[in-house]
Design a protein around this nucleic acid. Structure first.
Lengths: 240, 240
DNA sequence: GAGTGGTCTAGACCACGCA
DNA sequence: GCGTGGTCTAGACCACTCT
């Protein structure tokens, strides 16, 4: 009744986000047991399948490990950069001091010629908005990310600020667009001068390159990222 | 009643594997719709949550995309190497001609000094079995994988053949050990002479390195892999 | 034996896409 | 309006772990 804003969020998602927050904040320390599924049921007034959906997402993202007959054990927080899930590039970076710095204001352009994903007619003729940012962990640049967003029905987008904000958050709060899935290609390349500059490494150093496609709840609407990652001091981490 | 061997496999898993096989074999071509969830229910005599569990795994591994109100659409088969899920390194390689070639027979040794994961007392004092293999796609080597398996209760393991067999299959069929989860670290490095040799590339070429930990249904029992990957012609692919 | 997670049933209502 | 997937309920039985 009260709060039409938040009541759209499914129960399993609310529980997932609550538990995730508690794990990250140390309410449930590493190695400890989460409350049992039945406890969570009665505490949050939901049924087991709902609880299990939340827990299975926590497990697939590496926050917990489930053991039959024992319970759900909190894992050590990932020390790497959890870029392999879709929670944004910053998820799981833990207590590291992470900042996002825009290289320039967002600008519009035609799609690059050698774009690594297939584009629809609509996407092609609309052009794209480009966002260039670096992510800085503990003072040193680790990621250089170029995001390509189809320029379709996004009023005043280029005026938004992205400093220390997730692109996902901006899309969700301003346009009600949520990422529901995606896929990515990963390869190793050598840094050129430009990338080396952004990541503060030498030309010829090995770096990771990711090409990502993020699908949203708007049917047929996706956005795209190319990410260059310096893995000398950090590595990408993923769970399954 | 008949077949105590197979009847242990959960229904959602059987359905998942059936649908996956059909997708890979082209029974459901790219872009086509899978049968609806309710159809699958009646066809396979299960209820919707069971069907949904199978479909959600297919979706998370990138085989299908679900669209509310439309149905589950078969995606194009990944052209990369689906190493980011836990289905073995060969999953999703599609119609490419993939072969697994052992570098040597499995051998036992102490754990390496600089092992990238924490080991238990039991694992440490038991030592490990090492398996070195290359994966060859369309005639050129793409992966060089070193697997570390704790030498605990695995009778006659070093006599098994691993040529063109998944380590997962050997573990499951011989020892009833199944992989239930894991995590991995990914970084970019430069090939040294040895790796360059295995992957048929130059020293100093950029390659991907993965450190994986695979957890099994034996409580506390995991195995480990270091994987070196030549991404000049192929790339790693993952979905979420 | 008690408690845990793993699996499964048999329904229900809703939001969405399409004709 | 109809069928689709998204969410959720209220139970059930089993296999596993611990004591």
């Amino acid at each position: 009744m009260a709060g039409t804003e938040t009541s759209k969020i499914p129960q399993h998602r609310k529980l997932y986000e609550l538990l995730r927050k508690h794990i990250v904040e140390g309410v449930y320390p590493k190695g400890s047991l989460l409350p049992s599924e039945n406890e969570l049921c009665s505490t949050h007034d939901v049924t087991r399948p709902t609880v299990r959906q939340a827990l299975s997402r926590l497990a697939s993202e590496g926050y917990i490990i489930k053991h039959q007959g024992k319970g759900s054990i909190v894992r050590s927080l990932p020390k790497g950069i959890g870029i392999l899930s879709l929670q944004g590039t910053t998820s799981g970076v833990g207590k590291h001091n992470l900042k996002t710095k825009p290289i320039s204001k967002p600008y519009t352009r035609k799609w690059p010629e050698d774009f690594p994903f297939d584009l629809s007619e609509l996407e092609l003729e609309s052009g794209c908005i480009v966002l260039e940012r670096t992510r800085i962990v503990d003072g040193s640049p680790v990621l250089y990310e170029i995001s390509y967003i189809p320029n379709i029905n996004l009023p005043r987008f280029t005026n938004k600020s992205f400093e220390n904000k997730s692109l996902f958050d901006v899309m969700r709060s301003n346009y009600d667009i949520e990422v529901i899935g995606g896929n990515q290609k990963i390869m190793a390349i050598l840094a050129n001068k430009e990338i080396g500059n952004y990541l503060n490494i030498e030309e010829g150093d090995p770096i990771l390159k990711l090409e990502r496609k993020l699908e949203t709840n708007r049917s047929g609407y996706s956005f795209y990222s190319s990410i260059y990652c310096n893995t000398n001091n950090f590595y990408l981490e993923g769970s399954f």
